[in-house]
C-alpha cells in the first residue's frame, strides 16, 4: 500500500473512532464503515483499528472472521448473497443459483474477473414468505426466478 493511502486510511479510522468512541464496543460499527467504503478490511486497517481501540490485531481478525458479512480479503464491488436456507430452497433456489452461475461464469464463493460481483450464499434473510430471496449489498430482492435474478444482476 502506498504511504498516502495508509495515511488516509489512518485518518479515516481515527475519524470513525472519534465518532463512535474509543471503546471496544465501537469495533463492529467501525469495521462495518471501513468495509462499506473499501469492500474489505485490510491488514493495515485492522492493525490501525486495533491500535486506536487499544486491543490486539488478532482480536480484530478474530471478530472479522467470525461474522460472515465482514471480510479481510478484497471482494467484488457488489456482494450478492443468495439465501440457501430451507424455504428459499423449497421455492427454487437451486435453479436461480445455477442460472446466476452460468450467466456470470463463476461459482458461488467466487468473484467476477472485472471485480463487479462476488457471489455468496447466505442463511435465511427473513424473506421466506417471498422466496427465493437475495441481497445485493444492502438491498433485498424477492420472488426470484432464474430470469429475474439474472436481469437484476445485469443492472448492478
Amino acid at each position: 500500500m502506498l504511504v498516502v493511502e495508509k495515511n488516509s486510511l489512518t485518518e479515516e479510522i481515527e475519524e470513525l473512532v472519534a465518532h463512535y468512541g474509543n471503546d471496544r464496543a465501537s469495533l463492529l460499527p467501525i469495521l462495518q464503515d471501513v468495509q462499506r467504503k473499501h469492500s474489505y478490511i485490510s491488514d493495515y486497517a485492522q492493525q490501525e483499528i486495533a491500535r486506536v481501540l487499544d486491543i490486539h490485531p488478532v482480536e480484530v481478525y478474530g471478530v472479522i472472521s467470525f461474522y460472515s458479512f465482514l471480510y479481510s480479503k478484497p471482494m467484488g464491488r457488489n456482494i450478492v448473497r443468495l439465501c440457501q436456507t430451507i424455504t428459499c430452497d423449497l421455492q427454487g433456489k437451486k435453479a436461480v443459483a445455477e442460472a446466476i452461475e452460468r450467466e456470470l461464469g463463476i461459482k458461488f464463493g467466487g468473484t467476477t474477473k472485472d471485480n463487479r460481483i462476488t457471489l455468496e450464499y447466505a442463511n435465511c434473510l427473513g424473506m421466506c414468505d417471498q422466496g427465493p430471496a437475495m441481497l445485493i449489498n444492502d438491498k433485498v430482492y424477492s420472488y426470484l426466478t432464474p430470469e429475474k435474478a439474472v436481469e437484476i444482476l445485469g443492472e448492478v
Binding site: 486491543i55 490486539h56 490485531p57 488478532v58 482480536e59 481478525y61 478474530g62 472472521s65 467470525f66
Partner: peptide, 9 residues
Amino acid sequence: VGVLEATYK
C-alpha cells in the same frame, strides 16, 4: 501479548 485468538466460527 495477544498473539492467539479463536478465528472463524
